[in-house]
Design a protein around this nucleic acid. Structure first.
Lengths: 343, 343
DNA sequence: CTGAAAGCGCTTACAG
DNA sequence: CTGAAAGCGCTTACAG
């Protein structure tokens, strides 16, 4: 039952070769002769040999692991990105370490330590709030090119970043409203300090006006992506003398908060007002009415981030420090949008 | 900038001691003298020394990592459990490896290999569908006691399992209905083959009858936890000659599917029928009307699983192979429940 | 309390 | 194509 683990020496003995040859057969089979290879592979099977990671890691100065830094593991938004990351790295033979930055209490935390400790060969950053000191610790080190951002909004000079095509999504929303015949449209914004906020707002407003729709300043509501600010936007909406017939929200959660409040007040959706969200989180499909939204392909964001890091791991010399990648978004049409009732 | 990493030898030289003493100072400070300790610690700071994980791992035959096997990283249910797991293990100095079993295509995958490869020191299993052959590979090995189930429902002889107190939750639902004055109640069941299904159903029915409420067989609807079967239950509900005034669903998702269909048909919630879900997933709070539900404390499930594994890691001899742990649940009262309108 | 030395299990230049 | 040998950076019995 509990046979001691086979080491490379045991395999060598059984196969009648040196440990060097066993090692080569396993990691670089093309350099050994056919006969030797067969013998070694048989010996491997016979002994049940599996390479010891720690020994290999120590010798090669690699870890075979990638660290994913995530602000909050409970947030499905991020775990769906991880899902794409995992897929790529598993295929490439890497394992995935995850750390919840909410749980890291060390103010002196530095990304470079991850490399120096031999914890990981690369880092995928899903947290846009990692302190600058943690990031700048990388400057001038070889690890500098082995960190990739895929956190939706942050960007730091010298770190490649992957994110959704936000302006395109905002334009799709405007186009959808226009195609339904809406003439007056509004917007619920993201958080003030967030780079995505002007991206989505400006692209929406510009496109809407280009398509001949009216967008008044008082129809642009402040927000912060969270449910509660959507409800606040609804209060402002209800107080308006003249209301838009369609509202594009910068997040699904705000769209839901907006709808909940309106429904409580007897406003009909989509009859009285059409709503489009952004993200396509789980609730978008489940809400009543279900929410038309701009879907971000989160697994794809993860896949692109992983692929980018992987190519740097394989060829550290060939690196574009200004790498930016944009992942397409998609309009998902559901029940919350319709022609305006007076249209 | 790019100074070469300090090794333990460098620290030893600076401190004027042997590498053995540096090592002891770092891992077992109480055995070195105060003076030496101070000198070593200063040298550590001066050199920026950080222990090399691979070297330590090779020497100690440990990895300092725990593997979490999860069926689907995108599912928030599981990522919230991981969140609790991460918290405990980070504090204990372990790092967390995650693997999505959806992405593992190897039919010969065996849990014991994780230990033999030196990938992890322990495993938290969130996937109830891991093949038996993967699990039985552990039998008779030292790793046998280093795997913990926290996947909500699976149980395998010899592996400790952690889960919510399902019968208590079902009883809370019945009690809540009774306290509101309901006399006729129904239930939407979980999947047929799932051990949780009879747990929740039987506890609910028994408690309901004990409290003097009527539960007819035709008010017990089949289901499988997913949204669509909730909608199917709604169709059956609508076709009834006599309807219950309150329904307890074995999952939030089915409750939402049930409500969506009823709302579409003009049934008022909670006026015409009260609904209680199970889980407290994100949507429960956001739906309109928001859903009264039995909350499972998923981070706590993760924490208990992690703590259990940790104690086994620390003292492998002191192990109860029949360990079972139950995490309390909680009734979260929201808008979907009220007094019956004829009550 | 401390040091010298062995050794964890690999990989890889080097030599042939 | 293959082997002997060094060495990755630690920890820990052993001896003192």
């Amino acid at each position: 039952m509990n046979t001691p683990k086979a080491r490379i020496q045991d395999v060598a003995k059984v196969a009648g070769v040196s440990t060097a040859t066993v090692s080569r057969t396993l990691s670089n089979p093309s350099v050994v002769s056919e006969t030797t290879r067969t013998a070694v592979l048989e010996a491997v099977k016979a002994t049940g040999y599996r390479v010891n990671r720690a020994a290999r890691n120590l010798r090669t100065q690699k870890t075979g692991a990638i660290l994913v830094l995530i602000p909050n593991l409970s947030n499905p938004f991020f775990s769906q990105i991880i899902s794409g990351v995992e897929q790529i790295f598993r295929r490439a033979g890497y394992s995935l370490l995850v750390a919840d930055t909410d749980n890291i209490n060390d103010p002196d935390f530095r990304l470079v330590d991850v490399f120096e400790d031999g914890q990981a060969d690369g880092i995928i950053l899903l947290d846009g709030y990692v302190p600058m000191s943690a990031i700048t610790s990388l400057q001038g080190t070889e690890a500098e090119n082995l960190v990739v951002y895929a956190c939706e909004w942050a960007e730091t000079e010298g770190i490649p970043s992957i994110r959704s095509d936000n302006p395109a999504g905002a334009r799709m929303a405007a186009q959808h409203f226009a195609s339904l015949g809406h003439k007056k449209v509004g917007h619920i914004c993201g958080p003030k300090e967030n780079v995505l906020t002007p991206m989505r707002r400006d692209a929406f407003v510009t496109e809407a006006r280009k398509l001949g729709m009216e967008v008044r300043d008082e129809w642009i509501f402040p927000g912060d992506f969270r449910l509660v600010t959507g409800a606040q936007a609804a209060d402002m909406f209800l107080a308006l003398e003249e209301r838009p017939t369609a509202v594009f929200s910068a997040s699904d959660l705000m769209a839901v908060g907006f709808m909940k409040r309106l429904l409580s007040e007897g406003v009909r959706i989509p009859d009285d007002v059409s709503i489009i969200g952004f993200d396509d989180v789980g609730i978008a499909a489940y809400f009543h009415p279900s929410l038309t939204t701009i879907r971000q392909d989160r697994p794809q964001i993860g896949r692109v981030a992983a692929t980018t890091l992987l190519s740097r791991l394989r060829d550290p010399s060939n690196v574009d420090p200004y790498f930016r990648h944009t992942v397409p978004v998609e309009l998902i049409t559901r029940e919350s949008t319709a022609k305006p009732s007076d249209g």
